[in-house]
Every structure is written in C-alpha cells, then in structure tokens.
Amino acid sequence: MIGTLEYVEILDHSEKLGKMVLESDVMEAYTQSKIALNQDEEAKKLIKAFNDMKSHYEDIQRFGRYHPDYNEIMKKVRYTKREMDMHEKVASFKIAERNLQKLLDEISQYVALSVSEQVKAPKDGAAFTDSGCGCGSGGACGCAS
C-alpha cells in the first residue's frame, strides 16, 4: 500500500513539473518560434529545398566519394543548409529548441542526482546523439563508453 501511495505522489510531482515546463518562458519562446516558422512561406521553401537536397545526399552516400556527383551534391547540401540556417525564423526556432533542450536536460540532471550520483541523465542533448566516439555504434565498439 505504501509503495502505491509513493508512486501516486511521484506521479503528482511529475505532473506538476511537466506543467511548470509547459508554462515556462522557455516553452513559450519555443512555441512562438515554431508558430512563426510554420507560418513563414520562405522558410518552408528553404526547408523543403534542404530536405530534397538531403535525399540526393542520402542516395550518393551508398557510393561515397566514388559517386560521380559526390562533390557537386556535397556543395549543394552545404549551401542549402547554410541558406536555411541563416533564415531568421529558422535560426530563432533552432535557438529556442536548444534552450528548451537545455532546460529539459537540467531538469533530468537534477532529478537523477537527487536519486543518486550513479544515475545517468542526458546532458547537452545527449539523448539525441551517439556515444560521441564518432563511429555511430553507440559505444558498442568499445572506443567510448
């Protein structure tokens, strides 16, 4: 019975924490920048152009440098990404997204450390990256754990 009441209390606190995040200035900035991005036709075109170019990039990745259009596609991908990233609404959204991720990481870290020093929590957006070794195996290779 006590375990059940403790779980209910933990869930109540979790809901309160979630509500605090949803009502935060950081979340408000994220929401506003996302709305502004979704309403900007030029930004939509730039995002679509980048996604189309990215699909070409994925096609040539099977062959790598040996693909005849490798250098041209690589230049175009970098150019379209830069063009997209330099757009005011896209840049604002990315900043707001990073700030929200930072807030969520800080909360995760705080909760984890309140349980134990040994509990691991995502840090610096690490939930969306591999182990950092660069091989993409998530640390299974043993080069970083």
Rank of each mutant, 00 (worst) to 15 (best):
K19N: 15
M20Y: 10
M20G: 11
V21G: 10
V21A: 08
D25M: 03
D25E: 09
M27Y: 06
A29L: 10
T31R: 15
T31A: 14
Q32R: 14
Q32N: 15
A36S: 12
A36Q: 11
D40I: 13
D40Y: 07
A43K: 08
F50A: 05
F50I: 09
M53W: 01
K54Q: 12
K54N: 13
S55F: 02
Y57L: 14
E58Q: 11
D59W: 01
R65M: 09
P68A: 01
Y70V: 11
R78G: 04
Y79W: 04
T80S: 09
K81W: 00
R82V: 11
E83P: 08
M84K: 11
H87S: 06
E88H: 07
I95F: 00
I95P: 05
E97F: 00
E97N: 09
R98W: 00
R98T: 07
Q101L: 08
E106A: 03
E106Y: 00
I107Q: 03
S108Q: 08
Q109P: 02
Y110L: 13
A112T: 05
A112S: 05
L113H: 12
V115D: 02
V115Y: 06
K120G: 06
F128D: 07
T129M: 10
D130G: 12
D130W: 01
G138F: 03
G138D: 02
G142F: 02
A144F: 08
A144T: 13
